[in-house]
Simulated scan of single mutants.
Amino acid sequence: MIIHFLSVLALAAQQTSPANAPVAPTTSAPVLALEQTAALRCAAAIAVTARLQETEASDAPTYPPLGERGREFFVRTIAKLIDDTGLTREQLSDRLASEAELFRDRDRLSATMPACLLMLETAGV
């Protein structure tokens, strides 16, 4: 799971370019419920924000440090999605990559993070 977290973080660190448009998952996979989609989106948003914090990027949003808490939230979220949906790690990885790609738009990330911070607190991480 930590490897997947690091993959999302690495994706978030890449330069933005038109050639890197979000890609829809290529395999047939179950449709996620609203709560599951929100959890997946927040896992990606938290990973991206943690990466920006870690690299001290000039455009990093100002939030409490997410390092270990973010990793733990990410791992728990992905494990729960695997258990609840039957999605494989690869299928979730594809979806996470698509979500992380969307957060290259810092306005979108900033709009998403307040709800994700609430989700993080609610998760008790």
Rank of each mutant, 00 (worst) to 15 (best):
Q15E: 13
I3F: 09
E99T: 03
S28C: 00
S93I: 01
L87F: 02
R104M: 07
I46G: 02
T37V: 08
I82V: 15
L120E: 02
R104L: 08
I46M: 06
V31W: 04
R95C: 05
E68D: 10
E68H: 11
T112I: 02
L66K: 06
S17H: 15
S7C: 09
Q53D: 04
P25D: 08
A111R: 15
D105R: 14
Y63K: 06
Q91K: 06
D107A: 15
T16P: 00
E72L: 11
A44H: 03
A50Q: 09
A50N: 09
A47W: 07
T37H: 03
E72W: 05
Q91C: 01
A38F: 02
V48L: 04
V48C: 09
H4P: 00
R51N: 09
R95K: 14
A12V: 05
I78H: 03
L87Y: 01
A29M: 10
Q36A: 07
S93M: 10
A24F: 12
Q53R: 11
A45K: 06
F103G: 01
V48M: 01
L117K: 07
T16Y: 12
E101Q: 15
A24I: 11
D59F: 12
A43W: 06
T122V: 14
F5E: 02
A21T: 12
L66E: 03
A100W: 01
E72Q: 13
P18C: 13
L109G: 02
A115S: 13
T62N: 09
A44I: 04
A115W: 03
V125A: 10
P22Y: 13
N20T: 13
A111L: 15
A79I: 09
V48Y: 05
P22D: 12
A111K: 15
M1E: 07
A29L: 08
L118R: 13
H4V: 10
L81A: 03
L40K: 01
A60G: 03
S28A: 13
M119L: 15
Q36C: 01
E35P: 01
T37E: 03
E90S: 11
A24E: 11
E99P: 03
R108S: 09
I3R: 14
R51S: 10
A33H: 07
L120H: 07
M1C: 04
D107T: 14
D83A: 13
A50L: 02
H4K: 10
T85A: 00
R41K: 15
L11E: 10
L66I: 10
L117A: 04
A13H: 13
